[in-house]
Each structure stands twice: as structure tokens, then as C-alpha cells.
Simulated assay, not measured.
Amino acid sequence: MQKYETIKQSTFSASVYRDGVNKRIRVDDVRGNLPSLLTHLETESGFDQCEKLIIKAREYQFKILLEMGYVHEGEVTHYFNGDTAHFMSKFMKDERRASSYWCDEDAILSSVQKLRRQPHEKIAEQSIQLAEAGHAEELAHLYQKVFQLYPVPLHDPEYIRDAMNKGTIFVCIREDDQVISAASAEVDSQYKNAEITDCATLPHYRKGGFMKNLIAKLEDELRSREIYCAYTIARALSYGMNAAFHQLGYRYRGRLANNCYIYDKMEDMNIWEKDLWQ
């Protein structure tokens, strides 16, 4: 089960994402007494099923969490209306903390960061569409073909329609009467940031530069809506996706260990960020 909720107590208020599928809880924002929130979460029924607790901490909360044994895994420097969000994590199981691929991922990152940042080859503008509710079935079909596992239920057209209704922007490329490549931007209007996510291309159409063009289109849409902090959380084992974001000017901001089930297993995820003002 996955759900967002707002928890309000006399000493704190917090936005919390409970993610039973990935056995984690993520706190996207907390105001007030941080230790009280953590005590509240840790004493709740069902908390024993959580293997990882992630807090998106503000600057003044950073050292509090360090003192409480939380691990700093990365950051997005312009997340909170221009202020930094530190990704602070607590692991409840040794196996959730230990990554089987960390050195391989370091090698991929090092190789990616040696690539030159250069303008990508643009495809015809009319080839890229802003997806609408009527495209939900095709988008879901694409994600079913590309991902055996995914952190959210993108295989369900209703989930995609609901995301669109809540402000997520989907862009896609269609060919041969089907969506062959797509990506989205999950917009946080309150804090003026957006997560670039749901990036997928059918295997036969890869290496055509489609994803870079889709991401560039999303960036244009975000600028038009005065959203200037763009970030992504990409599979650390994916050379292609990390290379795409690096070459588009995104900066590496850290790695989240055993963050979610994606593709075919639990994976580490790299954080990349871009200031769209530049």
C-alpha cells in the first residue's frame, strides 16, 4: 500500500509518504519538533514492517538527524523554494543498508562524469507531445513492457490519470500508432521543484536520443510554470540514464542505498539536480 498523508500533532506537522511496496517511509516535509515526529512514527502499529526511513531535512534539521544516527545520502540544493533538502536515512535492517553493487555504480558514475557536456541532437518538435488523459492506456502499456518492477503502479492507467489530475506533466513520442518513449515531471507547486521521472523507451527505439529530447521538453514546460529546480532519482546501475542527465547539465548530488524496487530488483538510486534558471 502507498499513500500520502499529513500528520498534525500539538508539537509538529509533517507530510508523510507510506510506501508498503518498497518497505519504507519518506517524510517530505516536517515543521516543529522533529524528535517528536520520529517517536510518533516509530511507535505506530505497522512500523516494524519499515526497513528504511527517509527524511527530507531542512538545513537546521540536518545536524539534529546526524546526532540521532541518521545517514546523509544526498541532497537537492534548491528543493525548498531555493533552500536545500538533505536526504537523511535510517536503516532498520543490515541487508537494507548494504549494497551489492556500490563499486560497480561508482565505476559507472566515474565513466559518466568523464563524458563531455554537449548539445543533444534535437528531433522534430512536433514529434513530442504533451500527454493527456486519453494517452493513459498507451503510457501504461509502455511501462508494462519496459519495467518488470516499478516503485509506483505505472502499469495502471488510472494511476497515470490521477497523477495528471494532480499536476504531473507527461510527455511522449508516438510512432507506429503507439507510445515508444515517455517521461514525466512530478511538480511540487508549493516548494517550486519538480522530479523528472518515469523515463522509459521501448528497447527497439533506444539510442535514438529520444529521452534527452523528452527531458528538454519537460524543462521548457517547467520554466513556463516558473519551476526552476529540477531533479531526478535515477537507477545507479543504468549507464544510459545517468549519462543522459549528466550531458543535459544535471549535477550529481548523492546516492540512495537500496531505495526502491525498480526494473527487476531492489536498487540504489542516484540523485541529479539542475538549476533551470541557468
Rank of each mutant, 00 (worst) to 15 (best):
K122E: 12
V76G: 04
R161D: 04
V179G: 01
E186F: 09
I233Q: 13
V16L: 05
E186N: 09
L218H: 11
H204L: 11
D198K: 03
K8Y: 06
D106Q: 14
D268T: 02
C103A: 14
K265G: 00
E59G: 03
Y159M: 12
S100G: 04
S45C: 07
G240D: 14
L214D: 05
R18W: 14
Y250V: 01
K212H: 02
Y4D: 13
Q118G: 00
K192T: 11
P35H: 03
R96A: 09
D19I: 08
L248V: 05
Y70L: 13
Y143T: 11
D94F: 07
H141M: 12
G254F: 08
R96Y: 10
Y159F: 15
G134S: 10
D48N: 13
G134Q: 08
V71Y: 10
R116L: 10
V187Y: 04
K207P: 00
L142H: 11
I262L: 01
K192N: 12
E138P: 00
H40R: 05
F47W: 15
L256D: 00
E267A: 00
V71H: 11
V179P: 02
K56W: 10
R251V: 11
L53G: 08
D28Y: 07
P153L: 09
N33W: 01
S100P: 06
K56D: 05
C50V: 15
I64W: 04
L115N: 03
S238N: 03
G82L: 09
Q278K: 09
N165L: 13
F80Y: 15
T43P: 02
E67L: 08
Y4R: 13
N81C: 09
L222A: 12
N81W: 01
G74P: 11
M1R: 10
L218S: 02
G32M: 07
S110N: 15
L149S: 12
R223M: 11
Y17M: 12
Q9F: 03
E44H: 07
H86F: 15
H141V: 00
K265P: 00
N193P: 10
E105I: 03
K145P: 06
A230D: 12
F147D: 10
E95A: 03
E132R: 11
R96P: 04
R223H: 00
V30A: 06
T6I: 15
E226P: 00
F245K: 03
N81G: 07
E125Y: 11
S13C: 12
D268L: 01
E137D: 13
E158Q: 14
E44C: 14
V171N: 03
G209N: 06
V21E: 11
E105L: 05
G20N: 07
E105N: 14
K23F: 08
V112D: 08
V179S: 01
Q148R: 10
C199Q: 01
D94S: 09
T6E: 15
E73P: 03
Y60P: 06
V152G: 04
Y261E: 01
P119D: 05
G20P: 07
M92D: 08
G134W: 04
T232H: 04
I25W: 08
L115T: 10
A85Y: 05
F170M: 04
D198N: 15
V187F: 01
V112H: 07
T232I: 03
H40D: 09
L115G: 03
I196S: 09
E73T: 11
L248K: 06
N259I: 00
P153F: 10
Y252F: 15
S15E: 12
S184H: 02
M211Q: 13
